[in-house]
Design a binder for these strands. Sequence first.
DNA 1: GCCGCGATTTGATGCGCATCAACTGGAGTG
DNA 2: CACTCCAGTTGATGCGCATCAAATCGCGGC
Lengths: 291, 291
Amino acid sequence: MFESDKPHIDNSRCDRCAVRDRTVCAVAHLAAENELARVSRTRRVPAGETILAENAEASIVGNVLAGVLRMTKTLPDGREQIVGLINPGEFFGRPYSETVEFAYEAATDVELCVMDRRSFEAVVARNPELEHELLLTTLDDLAFARERMLLLGCQNTLERVATYLLVMLEHREQLFADVALQEHKRVAVSAITRRDLASYLSTTIETISRHIHHLSRIGVIRIIDSSRFEVLAYEMLLALSGLAREDLRLFRKAPLFGRGPRLVALNGIIQSRQTPVLTSVKTRSSRIGHF
Amino acid sequence: MFESDKPHIDNSRCDRCAVRDRTVCAVAHLAAENELARVSRTRRVPAGETILAENAEASIVGNVLAGVLRMTKTLPDGREQIVGLINPGEFFGRPYSETVEFAYEAATDVELCVMDRRSFEAVVARNPELEHELLLTTLDDLAFARERMLLLGCQNTLERVATYLLVMLEHREQLFADVALQEHKRVAVSAITRRDLASYLSTTIETISRHIHHLSRIGVIRIIDSSRFEVLAYEMLLALSGLAREDLRLFRKAPLFGRGPRLVALNGIIQSRQTPVLTSVKTRSSRIGHF
DNA sequence: GCCGCGATTTGATGCGCATCAACTGGAGTG
DNA sequence: CACTCCAGTTGATGCGCATCAAATCGCGGC
């Protein structure tokens, strides 16, 4: 356990991790980082596969490295609702519970960083900064989930489609936060299938198709292909979503962006290979004292 | 700060707290308990009053001692959704954020235990067992929120009403967990107005009225008065809700119930005037050690 | 280049439930 | 005791969207 051989190899895997700065790992102290590396392994899962079945044992947790996971819940008669999508850099699984309340499935081909749940919990118990980070992301997820209740409860299907496009755009804007190329920021990209989108927005593929083409016809968007849409009239789209501008704030899901002074100047782009030395140092020095 | 005068008085207030064993405070070590007592105060708020407005500064957090809070979100055109109800013993507010994403309002006359948010955060930072408990309840809330997405996205209005009755029943059964009187367990009690219920279930008071009377006509429930319903055919109600039996597990919201061995036999009833002496003792001796 | 199959689009129809409106009943008031 | 007033009930109507059905597109395989 305490040999410095295997861990070191694992840690180098983390050094090459594409989403390291966006995951819960980003706040881990050196010791915690090593512990996490020791209990984690990467795993590829093709689209459609189930990672954790509904009500199954909550055996593992982890981070999404690439691709998208869907969390679903199915009624006895077969009706299904996607209750959440999990993007690269985001945490998945159900800590501190024997079973998972929802199914976790690969919505696209995915690459995961997987950990045994109990091992993860043990690492968290020894590293308060991890527990704190987990709490922060869970609180954000909760606010996001409640925002989606508003979507499902109050917004009509056109407003839901408009909102989805705005959210995709928001994600895009964050990815290219410091890139000057404006055209990237105007393109909403949907990584999931139309079927999944329909389930996520609680409507049908036919209705989505109609609304997308309606938005195209009135000049609000341009359909590049079935999964990419250029937004030509942002303000119009916002108006059609029925949302207030400040509500979009909640949709900035990338965990470690825009949340307080922890990562003051995050100049690394997710795909960038630069080692975020300064960022790490800042993170460690600005932590709240636990004991 | 370290004088033992004022704190002692505050602490006695906590000793008389009706919901103490169900709140986050229940896991607090003695030192943390004193710290929480020092920064908290009770406050009564009449039904309809706003405690925290939507997007307002997240100045306070706290626990509900009596009554029900509603969390709402309103669209620019006035459409409103209740995204959560907060019952006695449950935590409210938004830690670790400058603003609240939702409005917190008194759905009934309420009694609150209120704390300055930053003071609360400071106490949590010094007491890891509190942070852990906060994480556990937040994870439960998140699962509950996602379950409600299923309700809003997949279930029709009759199924939503049936589900609500089942949830009320579930709450009741927990309150009277060890009481032999079976009749209490068969009565679903709704503390909120029909208008709030309509918003919570994302439907209208007319539709709720129709379904309630339909359920009464087919003999599934008996209408005692407009807020109390005796469930005559539990299995039928479950079938009409469209849910699987195990889904109800999620609705056991009372934070410290049914989660491990912390509260083995809670025989105190919230509304009862008996002092739950034994309960308090049991709680302290059976609490789990963190760290 | 042709075929076949799934994904998407477009059209026609029906139903669930919101909406509007009228009525009822009980609690509080002068 | 009539009064108002609000919560709840009941009925009539219309609309949004699911559903069913058919056409079209796109793409990999041979």
